[in-house]
């Protein structure tokens, strides 16, 4: 416990991070889920989700962030997002062609509408968020390894 407190930035930054990081994550999820009725979508929401974990990592050090989402889990989510997106495309063959919007459209301006588009948004959000977090963790580890060598 005491070792945890030594890593990362000062107490002020840690307290502010503890209060805000959950809200940043929730905002990312909101942007992903409402991609078809308001500005946003999978790309922006995924980057915001990745930024929330990077915020945790910058303030608390590497260990705390990796306990919440390890590098292996990030790689798993990234592959899951890619495969989910491809699977939604392939399921379109059940009705005729690739990327067919096979789910009923529903009423416009509602959260549950627009067929496969929210599902595609979720897949892309998973993929972008996990992929960018994996890139950042890899960069941080490269720096750490170099420091050890010297």
């Amino acid at each position: 416990m005491s070792k945890e407190h030594e890593q990362g930035m000062s107490v002020i930054v840690k307290t502010v991070t503890r209060l805000t990081v959950g809200m940043i994550f929730l905002y990312g999820v909101y942007i992903v889920l409402h991609g078809h009725i308001s500005p946003g979508g999978g790309f922006a929401g995924g980057v915001i989700i990745a930024l929330s974990f990077i915020h945790l990592m910058l303030a608390y050090g590497k260990d705390v962030a990796l306990r919440k989402l390890s590098k292996k889990t990030a790689s798993f989510f990234e592959s899951t997002g890619a495969l989910l997106f491809l699977a939604i495309g392939l399921l379109g063959f059940s009705g005729g062609y690739f990327f067919l919007n096979f789910i009923p459209k529903g009423e416009a301006f509602r959260l549950f509408s627009a067929g496969t588009i929210p599902l595609c948004n979720i897949a892309i959000g998973l993929k972008v968020g996990a992929g960018l977090f994996a890139i950042f963790v890899a960069l941080a580890m490269l720096k750490l390894e170099k420091g050890e060598k010297k």
Binding site: H36, I37, G41, N101, K105, A108, F109, A114, G115, I117
Partner: peptide, 8 residues
Amino acid sequence: TGAVNLVS
């Protein structure tokens, strides 16, 4: 498509 956001 049923989506309100046309870019999406």
